[in-house]
């Protein structure tokens, strides 16, 4: 792996790390497996791209993208809580609907941002070399999101969110409307995922309706890698681990793509298979370990 490829992987790890923080919030904290993310990532990308091509400030476009993602997450959570649709199914329904919505937003399957101003131009304006701009911007955004989520979960509402995932019966009998909390939590999660998608679009110079495929699997892989390597015994540590897990995941992918066994090489299209195998092995490993220990 070249130095340049490694740099690119870290950059990707940070920007998708924002998505991973969102996935951690639903998957681990709220115990709500949420596939909406496969739709809300391109939703954020398309909102941001279309806003920019219509002359909206690139930073403001990020805010709009975040709000759009928040709304998408809220819809999934409302389907689940108010209409009693299974969380997985509710999120798949929203995800499928978002495919059409994203194409509507972009009036087509993709939008290019060639020659448009993006959040990276501001940094490049300060004399930072262009290939480092992504790293800096993504690093700053990832740190802001990380600090925010840790601060937020330490608040009274945040503690209630943690309790909803841990013991819903208890927190309901303490006067918390668990439905509202789930709607807020899944909304926030998808808002972050959309923010991540918007930043990716601005970085690669285009939004594409297909860019969300496999987001949840990559997110889960990063979460699991992070937990395994960096631990999760406090909330702060768990979220830092999720972000670092994302970076390690992207580095591992870059490494795998560079490998060569005789005449065999991995294609970028093999990525989903590699990720799926990674997640499966991480999910069954604890069980397998337990069984082997019992013998």
């Amino acid at each position: 792996m070249t130095w340049y490829a490694a740099l690119g992987a870290v950059e990707q790890g940070l920007v998708y790390g924002i998505m991973v923080i969102g996935v951690y919030l639903t998957f681990r904290i709220l115990d709500f497996p949420d596939l909406t993310v496969d739709g809300s990532l391109p939703l954020g990308a398309s909102i941001s791209a279309v806003a920019i091509t219509h002359g909206v400030n690139p930073y403001l476009s990020l805010v709009i993208a975040l709000a759009g993602g928040f709304l998408a997450g809220m819809i999934t959570a409302i389907l689940n809580t108010k209409f009693k649709i299974l969380h997985l199914l509710a999120s798949i329904l929203t995800m499928i609907a978002l495919y059409s919505i994203n194409i509507r937003i972009m009036s087509g399957p993709n939008v290019a941002l060639l020659g448009q101003e993006t959040v990276f131009d501001a940094v490049i304006g300060f004399g930072v070399p262009a290939h480092l701009a992504g790293l800096i911007i993504f690093g700053i955004f990832a740190l802001i999101v990380l600090s925010f989520i840790i601060w937020f979960l330490g608040s009274e509402i945040g503690q209630a969110i943690l309790a909803v995932g841990d013991n819903p019966q208890m927190i309901r009998s303490l006067g918390v409307n668990t439905h509202t909390i789930i709607i807020l939590g899944v909304g926030l999660s998808n808002g972050l995922v959309a923010l991540s998608g918007a930043l990716v679009a601005q970085n690669q110079g285009a939004a594409d309706v297909g860019m969300g495929i496999g987001t949840i699997v990559a997110g889960l892989a990063s979460v699991i890698i992070g937990e395994t390597l960096f631990g999760c015994n406090t909330i702060a540590r768990a979220f830092i681990a999720a972000l670092l897990g994302s970076v390690v995941y992207r580095l591992a992918i870059a490494l795998a793509l560079g490998l060569e066994f005789g005449g065999f090489r991995f294609n970028p299209s093999d990525l989903n298979l590699i990720t799926a195998v990674l997640v499966i092995s991480a999910l069954i490993a604890p069980n397998l370990k337990k069984r082997l220990m019992q013998r």
Binding site: F152, G154, S155, E156, I157, G158, A160, L174, G175, V176
Partner: peptide, 11 residues
């Protein structure tokens, strides 16, 4: 905080 409003103050 049973039955009270929960805000952004520290938990």
């Amino acid at each position: 905080l049973r039955g009270k409003k929960r805000g952004l103050a520290r938990g």
